[in-house]
Design a protein around this nucleic acid. Structure first.
Lengths: 246, 246
DNA sequence: CCAAAAGTGTTGCGTGTACACCCATGT
DNA sequence: ACATGGGTGTACACGCAACACTTTTGG
């Protein structure tokens, strides 16, 4: 028993050393995060891009990304990019997928973790921090640098799916919004037309909208009511079972 | 014009070199994949685990994983593990999430990409390749090594959600199965009871089940019909819009 | 008073759910 | 014959989709 224990111990120390040396030696890759940052403006869904600085991709736009430092969590790295590029810190951010094809990057093996972020574009307007940054309508995005087109597409599809089952889309709107704005948002993200009355009924039936007692200002027609979303109520009531449905 | 172009070229070469050196130098981490391999047996959902070989976690079980080699795609690395540990190659495999907390692994910074895999446990029975491998019922999984409990939980939750909107669960059954088996599978994954008649109606209405013209064998009661799933038909008919529903 | 968008209800249809009886097989 | 689970149908409730008119505001 004692012997077995001692043998085990030595064996385990050996195994740990082996793994440590593997970890520290050749089996390493560069790791980056790339953020697909969505905004909503002029009734269009937009994405924030930066002009690529590599010759090979000179005329192309790319996602906002950076290498992950060895002492930095992935989520933290993604937040840093958001903060650095938009000046915003209170944003919706969620990991979507990791892209690790061997030859996806011209500078060597770089595995990248893609994050999807949703920001309120009005807030961002006040702090343009970089002249190489621009908002692009999603329909116009056709030819990004590296494999960023693929990453963008994955995040966009992810958003279209996710927005139907989770109220994350509201992060794209101001805190107070009209039902028209909300509907425009869904129509823009999903690229469909929705019936105004049914949309309204739907959201009121969910019972997560709080009447702010205020109306729109400066519109050339009858002003709409403003609402906010009650996230607390949502968290309590959110469903777990919605039925099998392929 | 020519000057500008030349300047650009030199600037770009410089930038590329800078990035390359960053990629090749300190900013590197070890990368692994971990597979949460689900099986279905005795009407229970099970997970394939291996006895951890590190002292600190001596008595604990862990997920099947390995370091990603510098010239290996992520998906490929996951497939290798499946192949190596189960002998199976034709399995359902999908990336779920990447875990990158700085201190998640005792051997140093290791970022891991979690994959969820579904295998037909009957097939696997024939090829037990490693005596340290065991199937565990999901309810009994409470204390895995490292952060594997968290990874497992993420994959299990992912599966519970995904199985409601995609027929991936059928990968856990034999090619021919009875409706009872299918229902047991869903009840096990979702941990709920379902009405037999409504379940039946639901699946027949989807119209993806093909009657094999055969019945169960060796059951101590009336044998049930056997069906297979028509994946081709599913691929054509699968829905894209199911409505906003939080 | 005109334009433009807000606000409001009803009806039909399809889908989910609850529920009970007869049938086929092995023992 | 009996025990066990297979196989079927109906009725009700609810949610979604289709659809038109009146109201409020600014110009």
């Amino acid at each position: 028993m004692a012997v077995t224990s001692k043998e085990n111990l030595q064996k385990n120390i050996k195994t740990l050393k082996k793994i440590q040396s593997e970890v520290q030696s050749i089996n390493r890759v560069a790791l980056s995060v790339d953020c697909v940052i969505f905004g909503f403006d002029e009734n269009k869904l937009k994405v924030l891009l930066i002009r690529s600085d590599l010759k090979k991709y000179q005329s192309k736009w790319s996602l906002l990304g950076d290498l992950v430092k060895p002492d930095e969590d992935l989520d933290t790295a993604a937040y840093h990019i958001l903060k650095q590029r938009t000046g915003l810190h209170d944003v919706y951010l969620e990991q979507v997928h990791t892209f690790g094809e061997v030859n996806r990057h011209p500078a060597g093996r770089v595995v990248t973790v893609a994050y999807c972020s949703l920001i309120n574009i009005q807030h961002h307007r006040l702090k343009i921090l970089d002249h190489e940054l621009h908002w692009h309508a999603v329909e116009s995005i056709t030819d990004l640098a590296f494999d960023h087109q693929k990453i963008f597409q994955a995040c966009y599809s992810w958003l279209q799916k996710r927005v139907q089952e989770h109220p994350l889309g509201l992060s794209l709107l101001p805190n107070k919004f009209s039902l028209r704005e909300l509907q425009n948002l869904y129509e823009a993200i999903l690229n469909i037309k929705l019936d105004r009355r049914n949309f309204r009924k739907k959201f009121f039936a969910m019972d997560f909208l709080v009447d702010m007692g205020e109306d729109e200002q400066n519109v050339p027609h009858r002003p709409g009511r403003l609402y906010k979303f009650d996230y607390e109520k949502y968290e309590k009531k959110k469903k777990t079972w919605s039925g099998i449905d392929f």
